[in-house]
Computed example of a mutant assay.
Amino acid sequence: MVVQAIRSLLFYVLYVGQTVMLAIIVGTDAIIRGRTGFGWAVAKYWGNSNLFFLRWVVGIRTDAQGTENIPDGPCILAAKHMSDWDIFAILPHTRRPAFIAKKELMDIPFFGWAARSFDTIRIDRSLGGDAIPMMMADARAALDRGCRIIIFPEGTRKAPLIPHDYRYGIVRMYEALNVPVVPVALNSGLYWGRHSLILWPGTARARFLPPILPGLSAEEFHRELTTRIEDETNRLILAAYDGGLSRPIPTDLREKLESLRDGHPPPTAETTTS
């Protein structure tokens, strides 16, 4: 564990250090020139270099499959979110990405300026009911520019096998934008935990699933998206567990994994609070 802790520390130094440096460079360029090809080139370097660091510094390999399910035209990629790896793994397959991000992140000097140059769509929750119309306007503009929209429907990182909670922002986008939605399942939280400072070796996997086409009702879409992502995420997690994990497994997580193996997936957030 000591060796892996040192490897993890080295990764964080490289990751945070270059992220700050590149944010200053791209943020400054964005102030001067606005959206340019330079910003996107740096974003691709940033994502690929962090995957390189993860592979060779801490031992996390990357496997992304199902990219043939991404339509050629405008679409939304709706992904499970467990760690920053999810961003790096999805980024190479987005052509021109427009991530949904909280306004608070966009207000950070240099980082926020750089994010705007990458077509990032902000959501300002302080606006209450006005937040969604503003987000939709930005999303339509991003699609018109040829972007693929990337959203994490649960709104935050989730640890493996905790109750899921898919918010209705993605449903409103599906209804308003009338483009296919590609569900993305993954298991990265087994290797890069939400609150863990230590990263563990293994193969983090992402699966781009067949798109959900426009035309479903709100409830049908919400149910279909949730079921597809959660079922495939659970399958990826269980396959990794059965293949052997090179990390300590806390008792509560092991119990959840054994329960999943017995055919009992984790409940929804609504179930646990009812």
Rank of each mutant, 00 (worst) to 15 (best):
93 H>L: 02
240 A>H: 03
107 D>Q: 12
197 L>K: 15
178 N>F: 01
126 S>R: 14
123 I>P: 00
82 M>G: 00
226 T>S: 15
225 L>P: 02
17 G>E: 11
9 L>H: 12
223 R>E: 15
172 R>E: 06
162 I>E: 15
269 A>R: 14
30 A>I: 04
160 P>D: 05
232 E>T: 14
98 A>W: 06
235 R>I: 03
232 E>R: 14
117 S>M: 07
121 I>C: 03
217 S>R: 14
216 L>W: 09
205 R>H: 03
220 E>G: 13
160 P>T: 02
194 R>N: 13
269 A>T: 11
265 P>I: 05
245 L>G: 09
273 T>M: 08
156 T>L: 00
43 A>L: 15
118 F>A: 07
168 Y>N: 13
272 T>N: 12
15 Y>G: 02
236 L>A: 06
111 F>Q: 07
72 D>K: 07
73 G>R: 06
266 P>F: 00
99 F>K: 04
254 R>L: 13
265 P>H: 09
39 G>T: 11
255 E>T: 07
59 G>M: 05
132 I>M: 14
79 A>H: 03
266 P>C: 01
62 T>Y: 04
122 R>T: 03
177 L>Y: 03
95 R>K: 12
143 L>S: 06
130 D>Y: 05
169 G>D: 07
6 I>G: 12
105 L>F: 10
156 T>I: 00
8 S>C: 10
